[in-house]
């Protein structure tokens, strides 16, 4: 049982069961609040019947012309609430917002090339790998850096699904600026 609703700043104080998870990043104040100030409709939380946060998604709209799209910045589900389809529900919200509010051509996301669990989940939701981004995740040591897969799913506005035709060659992080 899930209640999907807009994320509010008060929620930032009650995310520990999700954010203590090692793969979930804790951002600074400006990061969360910038998203709320600019794309409040893109920031949603999934709440349990007792009001506990189970997972959340944050995203944004960016790009020019046919590159105008919704971007998944963070999608996370608390360790106790995985494999229940919550990720799917949260992604649905983000896709709805991208399509109906921002009228984008596609939705994209970046995932660690090694994160097989996440990649397979996104594939089930209709995402395909558009390109590989070399050393997108930088670590403190060179061997810690890792490639990202840029995965995309076309929205109805992209009638011919041009936005998801895979690139033949990988790109560097500096090549993917949408601003």
């Amino acid at each position: 049982m899930t209640t999907l609703r807009r994320f509010r700043t008060d929620d930032l104080f009650t995310l520990n069961n999700i954010n203590l998870d090692p793969l979930t990043e804790n951002y600074n104040i400006s990061f969360y609040l910038t998203y709320l100030a600019r794309w409040p409709d893109y920031f949603s939380v999934a709440e349990s019947a007792s009001g506990q946060a189970m997972g959340y998604v944050m995203g944004k709209a960016e790009g020019r012309g046919k590159e105008w799209h919704g971007h998944v910045t963070a999608l996370t589900v608390g360790p106790a609430f995985r494999r229940l389809g919550l990720g799917k529900q949260l992604m649905q919200v983000l896709e709805d917002v991208s399509e109906k509010i921002y009228n984008g051509y596609f939705v994209d996301l970046f995932v660690r090339a090694s994160n097989a669990v996440a990649i397979s989940m996104y594939e089930q939701l209709g995402y395909t790998t558009y390109r590989r981004v070399l050393e997108y995740y930088s670590g403190t040591r060179p061997e810690d850096s890792e490639d990202a897969l840029d995965m995309r799913k076309a929205l109805p506005r992209d009638v011919n699904k041009e936005s998801v035709i895979p690139l033949k060659h990988p790109v560097r992080p500096e090549d993917i600026n949408f601003d």
């Binding site: 990043e25 804790n26 951002y27 600074n28 400006s30 990061f31 910038t34 998203y35 600019r38 944004k60 960016e62 020019r64 971007h71 910045t73 963070a74 970046f110 997108y136 995740y137 930088s138 993917i176 600026n177 949408f178 601003d179």
Partner: peptide
């Protein structure tokens, strides 16, 4: 850029929008 190392991973969220800039 924000000091959080994560921001670099998450793309360009911290940079101002083209319009604002």
């Amino acid at each position: 850029a924000p000091t959080s190392a994560a921001s670099s991973r998450a793309g360009s969220a911290s940079t101002p929008s083209p319009a604002a800039a």
